[in-house]
């Protein structure tokens, strides 16, 4: 007898929850989306809300952003908890400026090495052609001073 009534109370509670959880979750979802859309660094963040628990998935560029996103969500009305599954993914570096600085210095660096050609991409200087063994260290020194990421001379014939 007792178990039956406990059961029916529970069922009643569940039913109430199910009809009133929905709209609150939707409100939370809406507010979260609005907040996050104002944060360009949260462009790769996805949100699900179930029973007032907000789950964040996707990625951000650093720990600070991960924390900021979580706290901006935690303060929203009716949010009971936040599950932060955001991953940190470092941004891909932009080599445009470095490449252009290196390229502009290459003509001078190669002036005395007419049989050497060079290209630059993402900070990596790639050499082709040929060079005398005695001149190679001088060329390497000139290129090292240009702050490259790497000097690849594997295609350069050393005589």
């Amino acid at each position: 007898m007792k178990t039956l009534s406990v059961f029916s109370v529970l069922l009643f509670a569940l039913a109430v929850c199910m009809t009133s959880c929905g709209p609150k979750d939707l409100d939370i979802q809406k507010t979260v989306q609005t907040n996050l859309s104002a944060m360009p660094e949260a462009v790769n963040v996805a949100v699900t809300v179930i029973d007032g628990e907000v789950t964040l998935t996707g990625n951000v560029t650093d720990d600070a952003t991960k924390a900021i996103v979580e706290s901006s969500v935690a303060g929203i009305k009716n949010v009971k908890s936040v599950v932060n599954n955001l991953e940190i993914v470092a941004p891909t570096p932009d080599f445009t400026e470095l490449d252009s600085i290196i390229t502009s210095s290459l003509t001078d660096a190669l002036k005395d090495h007419s049989t050497v050609s060079a290209t630059v991409k993402e900070g990596v200087i790639t050499l082709t052609g040929d060079i005398k063994k005695t001149e190679l260290p001088i060329l390497m020194q000139k290129l090292s001073a240009l702050n490259p990421v790497k000097i690849d001379n594997t295609s350069l014939t050393v005589k």
Binding site: L136, M140, Q141, K150
Partner: peptide, 16 residues
Amino acid sequence: YDKIDPNFRSGDLILD
């Protein structure tokens, strides 16, 4: 440097 990495082929050091 040349002794360790002849002709600097490895490209794993920038000595500036």
